[in-house]
């Protein structure tokens, strides 16, 4: 079954409707029309550019181009993780911990999934590698950012409790244990919720896309389950690594709580 081709004029028809929506909100003085149009324009431009990049990448299909693309995605995700934290670790640690934990989890799981489970030829075939990594990085990024933000912000607000526990002779792991658990929880909640609601409340985007593109639903479902699991693995291990490294960094070698290693919110 072939995909029905979409031409630019068909997209233009959809774009006209978005402009009409913007017109309506402007007419009703709801003040959202400008944001709406800017966001719509960004979608078109960003996706068109990424389409060009992917076309080139698929045509080349060289390992180093795929790796370059993967690292560019990783660095952008690392920057995003850092930007989403209210009180971040100073001295490059916020970026470093976020990026490294995403690298360890997402890249390992992506490579394992490609080589052991899906098995395209060659294993780094960009049609498989890039979308898989993109979906994993996007979700891992959310988990790591939520967990690190919760960790540093809660440690700052509960510094009295942490220090009092240290004064009583507890190890640093014990003194921050509750906060670590909370941080893990907030990092993992989105993927757990997504798995629990999949297919019942929401039809996942990738599966919908595959079905629209002509895949039999049974195959699309299998891919979706695989993707859900890899996302969970990536997010879980990424969050685990980020919380472990981040909480360690909040204490020094004498097990003192060092909130001077966090930036002021801003």
């Amino acid at each position: 079954m072939d995909v029905i081709a979409l031409s630019w004029w068909q997209l233009a028809a959809a774009a006209l409707l978005v402009i009409a929506l913007a017109g309506c909100t402007a007419w009703a003085r709801l003040g959202m029309s400008q944001n709406l149009l800017v966001a719509a324009a960004r979608t078109v431009i960003q996706l068109a550019l990424v389409g060009l990049v992917l076309e080139a990448l698929f045509a080349a299909a060289e390992l180093y181009w795929v790796a370059l693309m993967a690292f560019a995605m990783l660095l952008i995700a690392g920057r995003e993780v850092m930007a989403r934290q209210k009180r971040r670790l100073l001295g490059g640690w916020a970026f470093g911990i976020g990026t490294l934990s995403m690298f360890l989890s997402s890249f390992t799981v992506a490579v394992l999934t490609l080589t052991l489970i899906i098995g395209p030829e060659p294993w780094y075939r960009p049609q498989y590698a890039i979308p898989l990594l993109g979906m994993m990085l996007g979700n891992t990024m959310t988990g790591v950012a939520l967990a690190l933000d919760r960790l540093t912000d809660t440690a700052w607000r509960q510094r009295g409790v942490i220090e009092n526990r240290l004064m009583l002779g507890q190890r640093w792991q014990e003194a921050i244990g509750d906060i670590r658990r909370e941080a893990m929880r907030s990092g993992l909640m989105p993927v757990i919720n997504a798995m629990a609601a999949a297919g019942v409340v929401s039809l996942p985007g990738m599966m919908t896309g595959q079905i629209l593109a002509g895949s039999p639903p049974a195959l699309a479902v299998k891919y979706q389950i695989l993707i859900m699991f890899t996302i969970t693995l990536g997010t879980g291990f990424g969050t685990l690594a980020a919380v472990a490294a981040g909480s360690r960094r909040l204490f020094d070698s004498r097990e003192r709580l060092r909130l001077d290693r966090l930036s002021a919110p801003g």
Binding site: G160, V161, E163, N164, R165, L166, M167, L168, G169, Q170, R171, W172, D178, R254, E255, R256
Partner: peptide, 20 residues
């Protein structure tokens, strides 16, 4: 000696206590 072992022996009771 490790920080926690020192504080376990030399214990500070702060002016304001915290309970978790």
């Amino acid at each position: 000696i490790p920080g926690h072992a020192w504080r376990r022996a030399v214990m500070l009771v702060p002016a304001e206590s915290h309970w978790w």
